[in-house]
Design a protein around this nucleic acid. Structure first.
Length: 421
RNA sequence: GUGAGCGUAGCUCAACAGGUUAGAGCACCGGAUUGUGGAUCCGGAGGUUGGGGGUUCGAAACCCCUCGUUCACCCCA
């Protein structure tokens, strides 16, 4: 095999990327904050397989959604089953809840998970074919207080992570009783204005009339302002739910915008939908989005248990968080000669057992060189092991930041290092 | 799926308007300095210019195809 072929073969798949150690550290930090926040609100982790029966998403995510129609990684396994790498998490949780009768547990049940999702979409800023989501779901609670609590938690999480300049957008998309009436009326009015709309919007009349509100053409914007809003068409139950939801957001002191054109692209949403957006993200401005889906469990043949949740794009979130350098606390063992190396191996073993991060230089280099390496990896301490030190069983411990150095036993070194960490 | 821009060393970028052996900074390795790091100086390694084809006496540059990437549309996290 030629070098070129080899080079081509090892490249990461389009739309995927490696998370290298420097960035992985940031992921760990963010994941730790996310997990702690979720647990504090009573959420528990639930892990499901990364692939499922294709049918699960066709039924759950919706046959007419873009995700199912053109973005799924589906394939046949060797047993001829049609499987799909999950494009989103909600259907998997719903499946698990029904399969394990989790609805028999005290309600509401709260679950969270962070993991990779897969969508065959053209990559661009904030959009990858393998990406990660935090997914949180609450089941079995109709009260709009839980809708508000979820938004409050999401908002709190973002401020804890020092994400600034975000907006909370909320809407209600109604239910199966009131939504069809609205769609019909919106289509009717858009049809009347068809000739004045751009070609893009003309197409949206039949595909997704709500998207006309998003058009960037000035003329379309003006026209769409006269169109009816979903919030004017809600049935009494949905209308009350939405008003109470908004009043609870006020109670929390959260600033939000009612965005009647906010529509989630997934078919299953009912009543509350929301997004938190940031203009710093570019065209894909949603950090997280979600809503209520009161019919899904029932539609899957389970009991009539309602659900609500959101998905947060981890890559998008990370792109908004500045990198913070954490100081390394490594002890670097400098060894002068073969005997010193053996002594160093034993000392490294000693420090590792005492929970100290410690590295040993294997190559026999001169002291200057080894010091230079210690400096490069950002070691906080250097322990010098030479002939004299081995004889005395006392070693030179150097604080790399201050440059101070003293002769100590391993036990004393441990004490000093711990005292300064 | 549609459209536009960009692919030169690990990274950031040079190379008049097509003309010797494709350069520099940072990073890396070695030395100055065989018991003391960061600074400085000297040296080294690293490239079939994403890949393939074409035009030309001559291509990193021009044309075509392809792959990748970026941004936007569609849609979404």
């Amino acid at each position: 095999m030629s070098r070129k072929e080899n080079k081509k073969q090892v490249a990461a798949i389009k739309g995927t990327k490696d998370i290298l150690p420097r960035e992985a550290r940031k992921w760990q930090q963010v994941e730790t904050v996310i997990e702690a926040t979720c647990e504090r609100y009573g959420y528990r982790e639930i892990r499901t397989p990364i692939f499922e029966a294709t049918e699960l998403f066709q039924k759950g995510t919706g046959e007419t959604s873009d995700i199912v129609m053109k973005e799924m990684y589906s394939f046949l396994d060797k047993g001829g089953r049609s499987l799909t790498l999950r494009p989103e998490y909600t259907p998997s949780i719903v499946r698990a809840i029904i399969e394990h009768r989790l609805y028999l547990q005290p309600q509401p049940m709260r679950y969270y998970y962070i993991g990779p999702m897969f969508r065959y979409d053209k990559p661009q800023k904030g959009r990858y074919r393998q990406f990660h989501q935090l997914d949180i779901e609450v089941f079995g609670e109709k009260d709009a207080a839980v809708d508000a609590e979820i938004v409050e938690m999401a908002s709190g999480l973002l401020s804890q992570l020092k994400v600034k300049g975000t907006d909370i957008l909320v809407n209600s998309v109604g239910c199966r009783k009131c939504r069809p009436g609205y769609h019909k009326e919106l289509r009717r009015q858009a049809e009347l204005a068809r000739d004045s709309l751009c070609s893009d919007c003309q197409r949206k009349i039949s595909t997704n009339p709500l998207r006309i509100f998003d058009c960037k053409e000035e003329s379309c914007r003006e026209i769409s302002q006269g169109f009816p809003k979903i919030t004017d068409f809600l049935c009494q139950e949905c209308d009350e739910h939405f008003k109470i939801f908004c009043s609870y957001l006020d109670l929390y002191g959260l600033k939000f915008k009612v965005e009647p054109r906010l529509v989630r692209g997934l078919d299953y949403y009912t009543k509350t939908t929301f997004e938190i957006v940031s203009t710093a993200l570019g065209a894909q401005d949603a950090i997280l989005g979600g809503g209520r889906y009161d019919d899904m469990i029932k539609d899957f043949g389970g009991p009539d248990v309602c659900g609500i949740g959101f998905a947060l794009g981890v890559e998008r979130l990370l792109s908004l968080i500045p990198e913070e350098k954490e100081p390394e606390n490594i002890v670097y063992l400098v060894c002068l000669g073969e005997e010193a190396k053996k002594e160093g191996m034993l000392l490294a073993q000693y420090f590792h057992k005492k929970n100290i991060e410690c590295l040993l230089e294997y190559k026999s280099r001169n002291l200057s060189n080894q010091m230079s390496r210690a400096n490069k990896i950002g070691a906080a301490w250097v322990l010098i092991i030479g002939e004299d030190e081995i004889k005395k069983k006392r070693f030179q411990l150097k604080n790399m930041a201050s440059g101070e150095q003293e002769e100590v036993t391993p036990e004393e070194a441990l004490h000093i290092i711990r005292g300064n960490i």
